[in-house]
Design a binder for these strands. Sequence first.
RNA 1: GGCGUCGUGGCCAAGUGGUAAGGCAAGGGUCUGCAAAACCCUCAUUCACGGGUUCAAAUCCCGUCGACGCCUCCA
Length: 471
Amino acid sequence: MLKIYNTLTRKTEEFQTLEPNLVKMYVCGVTVYNDAHVGHAMSALVFDIIRRYLEYRGYTVRHVMNYTDVDDKIINRAKQLGEDPLKLSARYIADYAADLKSLNVLPATANPQVSQTMPLIIEFIQGLIQKGHAYAAANGDVYFSVTSDDDYGRLSGRKLDDMQAGARIEIGEAKTHPMDFALWKAAKEGEISWDSPWGKGRPGWHIECSAMNLAELGEQIDIHGGGNDLIFPHHENEIAQSECYTGKEFSRYWVHNGMLQLGGEKMSKSLGNIISIKEFLSKRSADVMRMLVLNGTYRAPLMFNDDTLDAAEKNVERLKSALRPARASLSEVEGTKGLSAESLSALASAADSAKANFTEAMDSDFNTAGAVAALFELSKFINTARDNGATAEQLSPAQATFSELAAVLGLKLEEKQGSSEQDAQVNALIAERNEARKQKQWKRSDEIRDQLKEMGVTIEDSKDGTTWRWG
RNA sequence: GGCGUCGUGGCCAAGUGGUAAGGCAAGGGUCUGCAAAACCCUCAUUCACGGGUUCAAAUCCCGUCGACGCCUCCA
């Protein structure tokens, strides 16, 4: 029984879909005007893991992630660069898609964009005006009326009265209530704009997600996700718009990831403490970033520093060790006995309980730290079996389970590969070293090992022979 | 000031009533010519602090202190 923490109720609830075996999941994507950073990566990874696990549990997942390609920041940046705003955003959309791919994040089933949802956005706003939830101001702006929605504030747990106390009152705006928010913004001179019943303009930030949800997934969805910095005002406003428009409950579960912390502070574009995804991947692997996320709790702040990254890197190496081949098959030693029937059945039951523990952990609000712990347990059994001389055939079922579970978490655990020429060169050096070792020429043997290390090759001697790998 | 999340060993962190998972680091060991990897052992009488409820609390309640997020664009 899968349980998910729901921000809306502040409780962990049993997960039940609107339609059997189908999950409609909408996750707020990014505003595309510069390089995405590792904080965005965290969010993408969290929902990729959730999606993969739901699929593992047998659901079909319709996973929608939007791109905000019409926005003040995009317009400003485009102005600076003298570029067309939609060309700029198209460039960064392609860029972000590439980042996600290199992070082994599965592509969403749909990636709607604001610029391509204009007719529905306008229709949506008109509907809200008709129902008395929105009003057009004299200057061409359209605002949502928060006082028209009795439930306003229920996601973030705020009351209108409380909010006004700390809210910065914007001057010169044509709002009836200070907390009213823009559905449509009248275009300024020379700005990109679309025609509407209220004159030329563009959508406010929140309406796009309500409209794209409706277009892609319908009136009601199962999961709405995003970073917890979006709870207010973005998601609060989405609920208000969608529920006032359809009269139905918008999303059953609201899932929010915690913020990535750099030096005790949230990493964000506005604070400027950014490490881009590309910069990260030039130094560490996609698996390391994913392991960092897996080691933590998706809802809690994630500590991002050299210590936690080094630990994550070690963790990845450790998991990789479970997938290394059996020694016996490499050694070409005749008459390898393999494991006893007893050890073999112990290995099989270790694989079974790893799977059970993995599922139990993931069922508890995606407890990835617990799921990874189950993999560590299994890797210990596999490695012990290998040390005890298990054959490739004997190791294979447990390794298959291990790979299957690792894949649910989206870990690749790939060993680096070299070209066949490089491999041949390494094999020749190892043959030479083995000859030297046979003659107890340790100096020469160690020279070759150092030379291989320079080339990026790690070697391991065992009684069955020498194995090596890149990295 | 308001709303919310949270405070577990040197570090990351699981655990929401029944007596502290896992990983990193550290120390010892097996193996090895040495190394590397793997494996084994050790490593919190205690869960921010102070009260309370209970046969029993890291887990529930109250209070205090502290951290972080949101209240303005933000994954």
